[in-house]
Design a protein around this nucleic acid. Structure first.
Lengths: 337, 337
DNA sequence: CTGAAAGCGCTAACAC
DNA sequence: GTGTTAGCGCTTTCAG
């Protein structure tokens, strides 16, 4: 095998090759490549011609080594094939590209160890910033972070402002969703999507909003109607609905913490011959594409994903002191309620 | 602002710092970091202790510059929030990580210019290989590629074996799907998802399989029943079904080129009061999660996504001569047929 | 406006 | 087994 060096050198033109070809110094070529201002237009043109002629492309590794920035940012999510995260990733990727950044996607599978690894700088050499959508990691872990790469938390507003957050107001959103159910005459409203108390601030906040709305309506909260789930997927919603329908007093409405759960519940209702929304109403959360085409179409809380992505990127690139940013949301009433 | 150099140097320990701390040379530290064999275990332990003490992390840019490899690979897809691509990305990402590779995701939006840019080496400096799921780019473009980064095409089997391909047998899969519809007594079977002829070999192949099955069954193919769509989304399927139901002789079955199209069609059928499958049967393609929970659940062609991801990564890393690899698929019959 | 030259941190050829 | 050292290709300070 040939030496790496000679092989690579033969394949790609370097800055020096361009300089020789154009009869200028590397400095000048670098200036042209980087759009530096003080280059005479004659020189600029000549250099550009050489660049094109040689098919020169700057070596990113060398540039990174020198500049200390990679132009990459990481989006860390539990799973990219969950529609909410897929939609968020799509928007973030597009917006990042518009800013000259490239998006790297990391899946944690909701695994605490992997989340910690990311938090402790697994990607710090590779990216200029991390957008982190935590699942299993406790706020304390965030405080104990040793890594120096800029970090923005997505979808969490817990704890002090040690680190940047961008999220919708989950408590308010959950309250509105539940109030909507109350307003349409529902009295036994279940909440589906609870998580073990130690983790997942988002689920906790949605539960809080749900309880607030019940209390405000003078409805007693029933432990039987607060349903924990393993993950937030369709299969979990399916099982939850099955169990709820077995109850001596089944609910007349479900507030689901994700659309996926709601869609699973919808399917379970259909299997049992339970009519939606007449027998049971359903509200989801996330406004994923599937919910717009399901039969019946899903009422849901729609977080402004574009805005979330945009605000998160702003925080990452602007380097201001940590803050909690609230992104907008709205309740979209469709056919399941 | 402090000079980049001094600042960065103050923050992160370098190989030389570790060497000094452990009282050995950088060579030895490098050997330990890279798991080189000829290091005495005493030295190894001492070096490892210093690495831990200083929190040393190898600088990826320097390593890349030296080694000529980045450890990154790119997955190029039209859109990451399309469930099929999201599911494929999730699997590819997991498999890549298991091989010590990091996955970068690029969205082209199905835009020919962006696909070309990627093909012509937009990522060549950044990644060691590209998994490319083409949409709008013609086979000729592939042949004219100037870039030297290993490339594997996903979901296309067109043209000569200039470049690696991994895909299911789309013709056979489409034939089987259509045959299944024929076997269950359908006689006016529509195909939904045609694309302008110049692009998208996948759509062309699925159409071919559909026609083959019709011919084999002695059914005439009707241009009215071959429906082109803009994109392959739910909204396109919705519109297609609406149009088909307006026909003087509406179809009694739809073979849809994606599950998303089928799910849109399903919704349109519900809106018109058309019963599925008794009035119209539906077969999709891709076996996305949504189709397993829709009401009724979607019959579909299930490509083995894990296998596709695995085979594609194999091709990328093994560096054998270009070949067309066929991944397995199977027809999953559920409730819409 | 342009040139010369010093590294960024690491790997690996070459010595011992 | 371990030490020395020459670059990988680029940016940027300092001089002109």
């Amino acid at each position: 095998m040939p030496r790496c060096k000679s092989y690579a050198a033969g394949v790609n033109a370097k800055l020096r090759d361009v300089a020789e070809h154009a009869g200028v110094s590397v400095r000048t070529v670098s200036n042209v490549v980087n759009g530096f201002q003080y280059v005479s237009s004659a020189t600029r043109e000549r250099v550009q011609a050489s660049i094109d002629a040689l098919g020169y492309r700057p070596n990113l590794a060398a540039r990174t080594l020198r500049r200390g920035r990679t132009g990459l940012i990481a989006l860390v999510v539990p799973e990219i094939d969950s529609p909410y995260f897929a939609e968020l990733a799509a928007r973030t990727s597009a917006l990042a590209e518009a800013r000259g950044l490239t998006l790297l996607i990391d899946q944690t599978g909701g695994d605490a160890e992997r989340e910690k690894a990311l938090l402790q700088g697994k990607r710090s050499q590779l990216v200029d910033g991390v957008l982190f959508s935590p699942w299993a990691v406790a706020p304390a872990e965030l405080a104990a972070r040793t890594d120096s790469v800029p970090l923005v938390l997505l979808g969490e507003h817990d704890g002090a402002d040690i680190v940047d957050h961008v999220a919708i107001d989950n408590v308010a959103a959950a309250r509105e969703a539940t109030e909507h159910l109350v307003r349409t005459g529902r009295r036994r409203i279940a909440a589906v999507g609870l998580q073990p108390a130690s983790l997942n601030a988002t689920a906790r906040q949605r539960l809080a909003g749900y309880r607030e709305a019940l209390a405000a309506a003078g409805l007693a909260s029933d432990p039987d109607l607060e349903v924990p789930v393993q993950r937030l997927h369709r299969a979990d919603g399916y099982r939850a609905m099955q169990a709820l329908l077995e109850l001596p007093q089944p609910p007349d409405a479900l507030f689901c913490f994700t659309d996926e759960i709601a869609l699973g519940a919808l399917r379970a209702a259909a299997d049992r011959g339970v009519a939606v929304p007449s027998d049971v109403a359903l509200v989801g959360f996330d406004d994923i594409e599937d919910g717009r085409f399901s039969v019946p179409a899903l009422t849901t809380v729609s977080p402004d994903k574009d805005r979330i992505a945009e605000l998160a990127l702003d925080r990452l690139t602007q380097g201001q002191p940590p803050a909690s940013i609230v992104a907008p949301h709205r309740l979209v009433v469709r056919e399941t309620s």
